[in-house]
Design a protein around this nucleic acid. Structure first.
Lengths: 215, 215
DNA sequence: CCGGAATGTTCATGCTGGCAACATCGGGCA
DNA sequence: TGCCCGATGTTGCCAGCATGAACATTCCGG
């Protein structure tokens, strides 16, 4: 992250990484719209156009930040689930794990609003608004989603009365925590005092868990 | 919306409204970030700075668009609920109404992605990132939310076993449909074929309805 | 040791938001 | 009736941003 020598050389040596770090910092501070090529370059101490040697443009840089943010989010969820004490009843344990993952999700969003928003910012493919499906890269799986889906599957496996696992159940749970996070961040639930906020989170989690069970 | 005479006069006569219309069109086409003062002015055929006579700046214009979009969203929800056939069983009717409202919500988001995103875009208060709580205008109630909350209250009133209506239940339901909408629009559920998308919507609705009942 | 490929820099273009000074119109008041 | 002032638009200007072209420097492999 930091260059070894203090002596400034013409070549930075690790510009790409340095730019990513700066951009992540920017996103952390002010969300995706704050991720600005010139500012990232400025912080690294390099001319703006230098970034073009390593990224196609602002979009590419933002995409990289987004990938990083998604990764950090999933890590936070796993950590939250890891802290959850086990339970003798496997069904209870599965429920607790799902709830813990969701809590981790929302907690990350609240603690790191900028990064969270960057994790799900929309990225215009490019200026050409034409047809051309071209790059049909299926887009790497988002680990946060995988975690939720697996937790729900686990819930279905041990649950009583062992509900059929609907393929869309993961998306439903994800919708709830995602929407909740955004409403808490920029939405109308923004200024909720911590106490009330917690109540909303727990209510939503209850809805998700029992709603999933009933699917 | 349109000026009566074709003859261009120095004074537009209804610039504020014309700008709002143009801005709404822009939002419809490309979401809130597309709402650009200069472009709106250009479409109306007026100089950019003229807009400053009617709006404090881009933020004000966007805020107006947002208000409009929220209103249109609520209208769409009410229309969707109105189309829903009644039921003899009041509990069933209440459930149907809630589901219909939710379907209207998501349907609007999918049909009008730009407007929907504008309806919930985040608006930096102003450049001054200082303290100064100042304008504590409690922000007008969002009708879409009110509709959901009332529907849930209605559900609780006639439901069996008549669950206590949790104050946060509305927020939970809102979270689900909001998150679902965003995941469908820009999120990873973007490219879902209509059939699969419908399945996800219905599953989420089922989760909301039964999850709310279990609260 | 040297020349090409990487990597950075400067310069230029075109977009945006925003401010100040100036121009024009139109309605109310003497 | 006529005139003046405020509302409304305009031109000019500046700063910040994305992006591309042409040029400079450095590093590394043959």
């Amino acid at each position: 992250m930091a260059a070894i020598s203090g002596g400034k050389t013409y070549h930075h040596g690790d510009l790409r990484n340095a730019l990513i770090c700066a951009a992540v910092d920017l996103a952390t501070e002010g969300g995706p719209e704050r991720v600005v090529l010139r500012e990232a370059a400025r912080r690294v101490g390099v001319s703006p156009t230098a970034a073009y040697r390593h990224f196609d443009g602002r979009g590419e840089l933002l995409r990289t930040v987004r990938t990083h943010a998604r990764c950090v989010l999933a890590d936070a969820m796993e950590r939250a689930a890891g802290r959850e004490p086990g339970a003798d009843d496997p069904a209870l344990a599965a429920e607790r794990r799902l709830a813990a993952l969701c809590r981790g999700y929302v907690g990350f969003a609240v603690d790191q609003p900028g990064l969270y928003r960057a994790a799900f910012c929309v990225l215009r493919p490019d200026g050409t608004a034409g047809a051309m499906p071209e790059r049909q890269v299926p887009e790497p799986e988002i680990r946060a989603f995988t975690l939720l889906r697996d937790a729900i599957e686990g819930l279905a496996r041990v649950g009583t009365p062992r509900p059929a696992v609907r393929p869309a159940a993961g998306a439903a749970a994800w919708s709830a925590v995602h929407g909740l996070s955004l409403l808490l961040l920029d939405g109308p639930l923004r200024r909720l005092p911590a106490q009330r906020r917690n109540a909303v989170v727990e209510t939503t989690l209850a809805m998700v868990v029992s709603g999933t069970r009933a699917l």
